[in-house]
Design a protein around this nucleic acid. Structure first.
Lengths: 364, 364
DNA sequence: TTGTACGCGTTATCAG
DNA sequence: CTGATAACGCGTACAA
């Protein structure tokens, strides 16, 4: 039998009082806990009077149902796990997109940072599974294919966002960088630029050679080509963009445009051009990648760049996961379109300063 | 009575088999669930043989205790809620610090983004409380004092990280920016700079006037002072740092050093100096704030700047919360020391490029 | 050394 | 219209 006062002092309820359970509400309202539950959840047939009375009492006591007990009964927790290979600036829009979609559906999100360590990733995964999350989102570090996670017999749905995996019946959402590259190159061609150069990062990760190949392909469709000596690889640093530009222009003054593997590099590029007295975009147009707003807007001229739409990708990862949690089966790799953001460094009226009005006013 | 086979098909266990409970383990091992529990948790007195047998069976079945049920029994969930006023780049080190401390203690973290909306914050808080988190960390948007949250009668411990609150018995950890400012100014004085200028952001948030006041105070201790015309406020943009520098030098060529309210501004400053032919640091030394590595290292010269040690602050927020969860009572506002990172723009040997070796090699 | 039975807080299915 | 009572999965005193 249940001791009526299993709580310490059943007296004072307000200040530092023990949190009330449904038993307390039932007792205070003079009904059974069954009735109480029905009253609060709007189920069953109850007299309007009792229902209201119970609700009032619950309100007064500050009753809040214990989610653990609910989850145990429901077999659902309304939580999802978010495993990050690493916590980087660039994926913030992705994270907010995911959070948006899930919080809207009243799901809570477990944040797990694997620190690029597969052991830690496994630990987090185990924790998530014992907490019975309803779904999992994996955000990889690069766009390279990553190994799939093993949820065992739990059947917990998994979505891979950003980096895909090679498990054929997993759902992967990844930015369509070839599409973004195509947008950029076609934009340059439309503006009459023919003699391009490409400054990018280390070839170790798939994204770098992929962008380069796509660039060449788009150009090839017009019978054009970027010769090897106008393609330069180095570290992802402004200084490399700067140095590469100087190296490039020292040996070839006929270049009409530079397509960069990132905004960081592009900023180094425009700095180098300005200091050489080369006008951008009139003499040489520049296009970046990633649309890092701070960098792109601070550059002189502000950078035209490819936006991977990571917030939208995150949102879709979230909603797709919710669908899967609701029983839908989904799989395959989906590449989401990019968008070209046009600023002064290529295509926008040089005088326009509208983009700069996006003041980062919170940067304290 | 409990139906022995409450699971659908008690046959296949491996592929897509239902996840086993402690009952399944007990049955498979031929013991009662009580014995089973003890065997798995190392409690009670069991024969080594049974204990091993049970453990083996559990292993084979891939048994994983249901955390919900455990939490219900323990009265603890080993989870904490992390409420962010807004998700900004700058607080990433803070977040990783928090995650580090908590994950090490095997706590899971609920990530809640309030989007600068107090209603959403309240919703997240309610969700966290019904999920019975063991503790909560609040990360504000600015360094200004923020309103406290109300955990009602739950007694859930709360730590405010970054921005403090005015609840006298709350625990707040916030960077000691006056200390950081003092480090910067004293560094400048040590290098013999006397005629300083200050370029900063909008005065709306406390951090801006506070840094300025501290600067004046440190100078006053040496009988020095920065006159109002050498203190400039504007938006947090590189362009403002650039413009402010030009305005400053147009009317006063005797300035020996510029203390900036952020690295973003400082980068605009060094660009302006270079383009005017003013040498930094020889003619004018420059100090920034925040140590945003990308910006600070890309600037020419690389920026000497104040680091708020947010990773460490996050770590301490985590460990302090764990202490409170374990029963310790803590309160008060604690200001954590900053650190001056010396680079070429003020104090470091100009030729040294060591800092730049911190290549952000993952910036794909 | 092992098993039984109760409790954690809630929902849901029955009788009444 | 309302009240017992059985789950949900686990930990643990207490009994055997």
């Amino acid at each position: 039998m249940r001791t009526p006062s299993s709580k310490k002092p059943p007296v004072e309820q307000q200040l530092t009082g023990v949190v009330p359970t449904i038993h307390d509400v039932a007792r205070a309202a003079g009904v059974s806990i069954g009735t109480c539950s029905k009253a609060l959840n709007g189920k069953g047939n109850l007299s309007v009077e009792t229902r209201e009375r119970v609700r009032l009492v619950a309100e007064q006591l500050g009753f809040r149902p214990n989610g653990l007990a609910q989850s145990l009964v429901w077999g659902r927790t309304f939580t999802v796990g978010l495993i990050l290979s690493a916590f980087r600036k660039r994926i913030i829009p992705l994270l907010t997109g995911i959070e948006d979609a899930l919080a809207t559906a009243r799901f809570s999100v477990f944040l797990c940072d694997a620190h690029d360590d597969s052991d830690r990733e496994q630990q987090h995964l185990n924790a998530l599974l014992s907490r019975h999350v309803d779904g999992i989102i994996i955000v990889g570090r690069h766009l390279d294919v990553r190994p799939p996670i093993d949820v065992g017999a739990t059947g917990v749905p998994v979505v891979y966002a950003y980096s895909p995996t090679d498990d054929p019946n997993a759902l992967c959402l990844t930015p369509d960088e070839p599409h973004g590259t195509r947008l950029a190159i076609e934009h340059l061609l439309r503006l009459g630029r023919r003699r391009l150069a490409h400054i990018s990062g280390p070839t170790a990760h798939i994204a770098v050679p992929l962008r380069e190949a796509t660039m060449q392909q788009v150009l090839a469709e017009r019978g054009l080509h970027v010769p090897p000596e106008r393609v330069l690889h180095g570290p992802w640093q402004e200084r490399w963009g700067y140095a590469a530009t100087n190296r490039l222009l020292d040996q070839d003054s006929s270049i009409e445009a530079i397509f960069c593997g990132s905004d960081v590099l592009a900023r180094g590029v425009v700095d180098a051009l300005r200091e050489r007295g080369v006008r951008a975009p009139q003499d040489i147009a520049v296009v970046g990648f990633h649309n890092m707003r701070g960098i792109a807007n601070a550059a002189r001229p502000a950078l035209t760049t490819v936006d991977a739409q990571l917030h939208e990708l995150g949102r879709q990862a979230g909603t797709n996961l919710l669908d899967m949690i609701n029983g839908q089966r989904k799989s395959g790799v989906f590449r989401l379109p990019c968008q070209l953001v046009i600023r002064e460094s290529c295509g926008a009226a040089v005088a326009s300063q509208t983009h700069q009005q996006a003041i980062e006013y919170d940067d304290l």
